[in-house]
Design a binder for these strands. Structure first.
Lengths: 193, 193
DNA sequence: GTCTATAGAAAGATAGAC
DNA sequence: GTCTATCTTTCTATAGAC
């Protein structure tokens, strides 16, 4: 075998990385396998040695994107719970996230796109969302957990909605106000006020 | 001329109505002109007598959808401001909206889809969003307007995000909890608590 | 595993008849 | 204005060489 298992793993990861970026930016249907493979430095024919179909790639890319999003990579900092929360919320609802300067979160970038996709893709999205909510639950001040156990569902929906709407808007001034308002409200909610 | 201006207007509206439904459910790229025209009771060739291109149809369908959404049609009820707000929030964040039993709101159904579309489409989306925020501002208790003038941006983002995420999720139990949490938070925010 | 070549299908847009 | 027929492009997926 002229190609090592490690080589295959690397190629696979390159494909997923390119797919993540392209799908997030343009949506599933607007990205061709040609584009994905070109981004990964290969050609069309090699694709099917790694994934059975474009749909399967989509589901895996959603999972992959979640692992590489800013939120997860910021997880292991050792500061207080409140500043963890503030940092995640502010980083998520930042203009650089909307503009894709940082690694985009598929929950916000692909929400309506996933809704009209295969069950497999929606399952992947659901798992990623549950992971995000669980993360928030783990970092939540214990005194607030009992009073409103599902509050983090609304907070995450606010964050995802804020970014998703911001991307769709044409008016940059409005986008800044929207993001600012979402940050403010998210902080308020997280502090139980 | 064998066809009256009224006839043309009717045909045009039929096309827009079908397009609105199909685009919302499946996204722009996953809907063909064939499908739209079949839904409107015509065939492909007649399309270009009404719209210059598929993209132009998309932009107009977004505007059209906004005029026909539940929110606007509920506008002229003569009850108190608070119950107007409660009714709109609860209607929007209802499972029947997610399941498309009622006329879907393009802001929630097409958010990420629009983000990767032509400037023309994004402009239409922006206008519709501004209209929604303005509507909320008009129904807002005056005493709250000064303290946080941009609060309605976050409230609408929460509503849109709640519906968009709900559509993408595979877990119906989680969807119900998510919608419930969003309704609860939206009410709380609207009352200035 | 990756390449080039190609089969086969789908869809946007146009042409011309009625 | 609406129809059928067609041009043209694009894209998924497969086949076979290396």
């Amino acid at each position: 075998m002229p190609y090592s298992a490690e080589h295959k793993q690397n190629s696979r990861e390159q494909i997923l990385r390119g797919a993540m970026t392209l799908f997030s930016r343009k949506g599933f249907a607007n990205v061709s396998i040609d584009e994905v493979m070109a981004e990964a430095g290969m050609t069309r024919g090699a694709f099917y040695a790694h994934f059975k179909s474009k749909s399967v790639l989509y589901a895996e890319a959603v999972m992959f994107a979640a692992l590489n999003s800013q939120i997860v990579t910021q997880l292991n900092a050792d500061d207080t719970e409140l500043s963890w929360f503030a940092r995640v919320v502010d980083g998520y609802l930042d203009i650089s996230h909307v503009d894709e300067t940082v690694s985009p979160c598929p929950l916000a970038f692909l929400a309506t796109d996933v809704a009209s996709s295969d069950p497999e893709v929606r399952r992947a999205y659901t798992e990623v969302y549950k992971g995000l909510v669980k993360l928030f639950d783990q970092h939540r001040p214990p005194r607030l957990k009992k009073s409103d156990p599902d509050l983090n569902l609304a907070i995450t929906a606010l964050m995802i909605g804020g970014v998703a709407v911001s991307r769709a808007l044409h008016d940059k001034t409005l986008v800044k106000k929207l993001l600012s308002s979402c940050r403010s409200v998210a902080h308020r909610l997280a502090q139980g006020r």
